[in-house]
Design a protein around this nucleic acid. Sequence first.
DNA 1: CCCGAATTACGATAGGTGTCGTACAATGGC
DNA 2: GCCATTGTACGACACCTATCGTAATTCGGG
Lengths: 118, 118
Amino acid sequence: MNAVTTSTRELAHPTRDEIRLEGVLHALSDPMRLRIVRELAVAESDLSCSYFTLPVTKSTTTHHFRVLRESGVIRQVYRGTAKLNGLRREDLDLLFPGLLDRVLAAAALEADRLGTDG
Amino acid sequence: MNAVTTSTRELAHPTRDEIRLEGVLHALSDPMRLRIVRELAVAESDLSCSYFTLPVTKSTTTHHFRVLRESGVIRQVYRGTAKLNGLRREDLDLLFPGLLDRVLAAAALEADRLGTDG
DNA sequence: CCCGAATTACGATAGGTGTCGTACAATGGC
DNA sequence: GCCATTGTACGACACCTATCGTAATTCGGG
């Protein structure tokens, strides 16, 4: 009905200064999560969870998105029944300059090297 | 038991092309291991395990060094009763250009931010 | 040839984690 | 109001992992 759908469901995000390097590295060390992050990185805007077609169930997908959110790697906002996901680029770049880009570049190089892209 | 006393106990290392980004990120996502890597990074030469004074037992320290070696982050060589540890900078920089430096810089920034250095 | 120093091996343990399946909840369109 | 779409909650399970303590191994030196 409303032109601007204001969702009431709130999601807990760590503030910028609560983000820990160890947590970010751990979040990125899982193949599924790294794949999600890579897709978010090349996306022009936020992507819904259903956009991703991962070789795991929806339950597991939900789990991975939560890990990414709670570690501060992504931001999640409800819009209707969907949940939009976006990288927290600014926060990450402020805390860990250049880190995300290097990880993404490394992931691209490795995917190319192994011939298995995600 | 044997007669070969060339002090060459061999340790299994992954070859460069066996190193995986996920494994490296996972290895670096542990506080103890990140601390070890940071110390190795500023060292002029290889360091023995006993050089490090970590708040864990020697058994646990051995475990962490093994994780770092098996993930390809460090190289370990026996010399007498000691075991010398060094970063595999060249291999890592070839595989993942700039990644290690950014992680180290991020770790330094975070340590400064949190006021808790290692 | 024994001793001490450095490190490992082994077993144990508590907690984390990736995965699944099924049942449940929120939302927007009809 | 109903229902399809989207995602969550919860329980379960196998596996991994960080940690410890103690016993064992390797090596150089006396």
